[in-house]
Design a protein around this nucleic acid. Structure first.
Lengths: 283, 283
DNA sequence: TTATCGAGTTCCATTATTCGGAACTCTGTT
DNA sequence: AACAGAGTTCCGAATAATGGAACTCGATAA
């Protein structure tokens, strides 16, 4: 479940000594509860002494990063985060660039499509499209999942340069979600090699019983992994074999996104040409 | 457009002396650009000296709040924000609670429905549903807009207690977006009084030319303003009169949401017993 | 080739902020 | 009336942030 997934790698507590890092740890902690919390609840799980934690919580509340309900004395994540995340989603995620491709794929295969990126050893879903009931987008954007047992996660891991993959693998907790979950490094290494061979990754009910997925990595021309796109199906409606038949579509979607990304990134830094100057002059 | 809206009240620079506040100011600054930025661009608009700003940017990048593209030397908002915002949206926004009502309303009136809350003197859109093309949800969640010239903003302002409304009004910049925009305090006060009379607010192309809206506040039994829900239409498809005919539906949706919210807030914390119930009634 | 310039980065003594133990205030309980 | 536990405030000590200045690196000019 979501709560379990989150707890998995959440403990990688910031190695940062700074005040800002500590404050963000507190935010993460509130997020980990998944519901508004009492001060004492936080305190009991916090490495900080009462007065210190209290100050943090006060500061964060004052800054809008936490919300506070004085009635019930409950702290929750603040709306300012939603505002900031909107920008993050637009600027740093593949979602806006990939939107058309995601929709295309969803319509073509008639199943749920996910777009994901790596964030600190975890899979972060940044977009989702369900052909049948095309809603609930936000319900998924921002969710996190394990990298070692999801199709998107394995697709990304497989094509990562060794130097980057190693530290990420070391942070995985290898929890057995289902009987099919790969829970040892050796097994995963083999799986990743296979994926490198075929060009796409499969999730054979490794994360959630009854759910199978196929995913392809989104890579720049230079081989840099930007993210992954996947199709999810229920075993009640599709066999793994059926799903594998969509591989060409998934791979095609992934490379279409990669191309859009390349086109998008080019003019970004290009020494701010005339076009951008005009737009920028007046603020 | 969006950039303008944001710039309006964004300058309310944190009055906080703390390090965390300053770091968040930097985040806001990056957000204000609306695109990845060079260090020097930030520096030129920052109150901090080079070394200080540099350290902030380094820290934030290390913490995942900013992303950095070494290739092009550009900083953007980081994906960690997306992760946190997911929690914020679920915990602190009305969106999950209101979802059914929002969809209901969208289907009934066949136009775009917005759900908004107040965040630091600005309107923050937390959900959206377009009956025609039921997508693009995230494209709207997290967006901000002016409070004084949107239907949702005015609906909330009108029903806020005096003590809360006053400081918010003082932070408004009263920019004239269209000829219909109300740009003086007196005019706005009169408008708010009218809204208190009718129970709903109208936007007569005050923010965007060609767009009209109707909104109702979402209030607890005790009169606390939680947010607002609105219907947006284009003048090409609907007259203001047509739109006003939906008022009962909008108001009904708002009160349905308020009721769900009340029900939701009760069982929130496990060990709250009889003692706190009394406090609740008095809101 | 060498000088120049600006962007980005590092250093470190000074300064201001954060830290956290302990004491205090409420509110509800024994 | 005494107690208990959550939440809050205080203040000297400990720590982290500050920012001027110096340095590196590329690119452009002389």
């Amino acid at each position: 479940m979501a709560a379990t997934d989150q707890a998995e790698t959440a403990e990688s507590g910031t190695v940062e000594g700074g005040t800002v890092g500590k404050a963000l740890d507190v935010l993460d902690q509130v997020a980990a509860f998944g519901r508004p919390v009492r001060f004492s609840e936080l305190l009991s799980e916090s490495p900080y002494p009462k007065a210190t934690l209290y100050r943090f919580v006060q500061t964060l509340t004052g800054l809008g990063m936490l919300s506070y309900d004085p009635e019930r004395q409950l702290y929750g994540l603040g709306l300012r985060l939603v505002r900031l995340a909107h920008g993050a989603w637009q600027q740093s995620s593949l979602a806006p660039i990939a939107r058309t491709s995601v929709e295309h794929l969803a319509e073509k295969v008639g199943e749920t499509v996910h777009l994901a990126q790596l964030d600190a050893a975890q899979v972060l879903y940044v977009d989702k499209r369900n052909a049948a009931k095309p809603n609930e987008v936000y319900s998924s954007a921002g969710k996190v999942g394990p990298a070692y047992c999801t199709a998107v996660g394995k697709a990304m891991l497989a094509f990562l340069p060794d130097a980057e993959r190693r530290p990420i693998l070391e942070q995985q907790s290898f929890h057995r979600f289902t009987p099919a979950t790969i829970i040892d490094r050796r097994g995963l290494d083999a799986e990743l090699a296979t994926i490198r061979g075929t060009g796409y990754a499969l999730d054979r009910q490794e994360h959630e019983p009854g759910n199978i997925c196929i995913a392809a990595p989104i890579q720049t021309a230079g081989g840099w992994v930007l993210g992954a796109i996947s199709v999810t199906a229920s075993i009640e409606r599709m066999t793994l074999h059926d799903l594998e038949a969509t591989a060409p579509d998934v791979v095609a979607a992934a490379s279409a996104i990669a191309q859009s990304a390349a086109a998008w990134r080019f003019p970004v830094s290009g020494e701010i040409s005339e076009t951008e100057k005009a737009a920028e002059c007046r603020v």
